[in-house]
Structure formats: C-alpha cells, structure tokens
Design a protein around this nucleic acid. Structure first.
Lengths: 194, 194
DNA sequence: TTGCAAGCGGGGCGACCGTTCCGTATCGTA
DNA sequence: TACGATACGGAACGGTCGCCCCGCTTGCAA
C-alpha cells in the first residue's frame, strides 16, 4: 500500500522551493476562483513556468487534489480538539460552522465537496471517509446528548454542509455571513417539537 | 419600454418551428448538464445547424437566459394559486419546496439562481425581482400567521433556497430526495424555542 | 409555377487551455 | 572549479468551443 521505499529521492533545493510556491499559490487561486482557473495563471502568479507546475504535479486535477486534501485533513485534524474542549452539542456545531466557513471562503473546496466537476468522494475516497468519520463521531455524541435530533445520518449532515456552503457562498460580501440563517439551521437540527 | 411596434415581423413557418425546437432542446440539455454544454450539442439534438441557433439567439447567454426566464416565470405564476388554496404557512412551504424541486431537477436553473457563472440577478433583474416579490408575499403572510419566525427577510429565504437546491442536487439519485432534511429546514424556519 | 427574400447548415476562424518538449540555466558534488 | 544530473521556462501542439460567413434550399406571394 505504501510508496516504494526507494521512490523518495530528495529534491534539489530550488525544486523544493518551487513546489512549495506552486502549492501555496494554487491554494490561493483555487480558493478564489475555483477549479476553472488556467494552470498558466497559477504558474504566472507563482513566478514559475507552466512546465514546472507539471513536473511536480502530473495533471491539473492532481494539483487541485493536493490542495483540497490538505484543507480537508486540516479540518479533520481539528475535530478531536473540538470534541475535547466542548460539550457534545457545541462541538458538533462548532465543527459544522468551521467547515462551512472554510468552504465558503474556498471555492475550490466547496466545489470538491459538492461534487461539481471534481468530486472528492470519487477521486479521494479515503480522505472523504476520514472527514465523514470525524463528522460522524461528533454527530453521534451530539445525538446521544440530545443536542441533535435522532434519525439524522452522516450523509444527511454532509448534504446539509454542502447546502450551507452554498448559502454562505451566495451571501459572500454581505456582512454577518449566514446571520439569522445560522439559528434557523441550528434550531432545525435540534429538532422541532420538544 | 416595449418593443417597437414594427419590429415584430412574422417568422416563416420553418423558422418558427426551428426556434421552438431549439428552445425545447436547450431547456432539456441545460437542465441536464448546465450552462457548460456546447451550443453545437444543442443544435445537433435539435436537428438544426449551429448557425440556426445563432440566428434566433444572438449569444449562448441569450439562449440560456430565455430558457431560465421561462422556468422562473412559470414558478412565479404558480404563487398566487398556492396562496389562494392553502393557509399561509402551507403556501409558503409549498412554494419553497416546489422551487427547490425545480432547481434540483434543472442544473441550469440552479446555477442561475446561485449566480454560478451566469447570474439572474445581474442579467435579468426584473425577473429576479418578480420572483423575490412572489416569495416575499408568501413569506410575509406566513410570518403574520406565525408559521415562519419573524426577522427573516426575502434575502434570507433566497439564500436558503439556493442552499436547499444544493442539498437536493447533491442528493440527486438517492431515493426520497431531502427526506428528513426537509423537516429540519421546516422546523428551523418555524422558529426554535416556542 | 416562378422569383426572391428569408432561412438554413456546417465548415472555418480565432481564442483559450491542458499538456508536452527541449534548449538552457542551476544545483550539488568531487 | 568543473562536470553531470536535475530542474527550469515558455514556445508549441492538439483539442474544444463560441461565433461568423456564405453558398444553397425553401417557403410564400404573385
């Protein structure tokens, strides 16, 4: 499963530097404009040639994937801390809104989550699974504590996440982000008639 | 404001037929694949040449707009009937879910609503306004009847609509559509703590 | 039936974009 | 310092797509 032991040859200093620059720039640009930006644009902003981008990442999709997986794993990594620092309901909602904010500020991530053009769940199932697991744990705890209505599945929550990203993205520019809508969603998740 | 009286010259029979075929086909294709489909594809499926499409619609955007406005006005036209036939809360939610279903089954419409690439609110402000007004009336009545929490604006509802379209579209293929999430949203809209 | 304006099809142009290639510059080592 | 390996840049290629053009067809009126 793991990469061949010999396969990692140390990169030359300039190569390592360029790779990092490309990755950073790609993140910025994909976040701002989504998967649609031309590779040439990323190369230009990173101060390298297009050929350099392709030497480090075999296709545009591979570069996009590297960027998205990084953001996704960052999110996943924050879940245990949230679980430890808050009571179950708060932890779940904190993770939900953190994810929504991340996606609303990152068009590429939002597209990847929603499966628009590039689909995480298809291209990187393991990462998608890690994210679902993290969310699933938080959800289960919150449900056990009565902070989120029973019956909701991780899949429901993922769909809701995609929806909330779309909402907040639609609102980008307006002050306050979701505003009242945040309460609407939260109250709905808690359950209606008790 | 209205078109010059002389400007409407009757089309030849074949031209009228072709125009209709293009419009129907464009609706099907944009609904299935979004704004991204090539014009040639629409022309091919309609059984005409690309030149014919461009004689009837000056640009791809104009064709898209014609299709989207048609669907939007259909939706708007259904609002008064809903208002008359149901009590305020039901009418509002019926319109909301009808709009969501429409957008979930029509990628082009969903894109236009969310402002992805092509934005109704920019390209056809009057149509957007008609839609907002229809939704606004329903919302106001529902709020007056206590079926929807106070404080929500038409803009909130439009954002929610965009979000729900994204949710349901994310779920397309799965049986039951939104399922429990429908109740989540409805309960949230009604208001949490009473 | 005939003449012509209206309409048609589809090849072609120009712009854009992902990807490749290769002559040149740079790094790291001995 | 000198040399080979590594990496670089950006021109160029192939494919796609919006849109235009023009020789041919077709509907309609006389």
């Amino acid at each position: 499963m793991s990469a061949n032991l010999e396969s990692v040859k140390p990169l030359r200093a300039d190569a390592r530097r360029n790779r990092a620059r490309v990755l950073d720039t790609a993140h910025e640009v994909f976040a701002a404009e989504g998967f649609g930006v031309p590779i040439d644009e990323i190369a230009r902003r990173a101060g390298v040639g297009a050929g350099t981008v392709y030497r480090h990442f075999p296709t545009k999709e591979a570069l996009f994937e590297a960027v998205v997986l990084d953001r996704l794993d960052r999110l996943v990594a924050s879940a245990p801390d949230l679980a430890a620092a808050h009571e179950p309901g708060e932890a779940f909602f904190a993770f939900l809104w953190a994810s929504v904010d991340e996606g609303a500020g990152d068009k590429g991530l939002a597209e990847a989550m929603a499966g628009a053009g590039y689909d995480i769940a298809v291209l990187a199932p393991e990462a998608e699974q890690r994210f679902r697991n993290a969310f699933g744990d938080l959800l289960t705890r919150a449900q056990a504590a009565g902070a989120v209505r029973a019956g909701l599945t991780v899949d429901d929550v993922k769909a809701l996440l995609v929806g909330c990203m779309a909402m907040q993205r639609y609102r980008s520019g307006e002050a306050g982000g979701l505003g009242l809508l945040r309460e609407v969603v939260q109250d709905g998740l808690r359950g209606g008639r008790n």
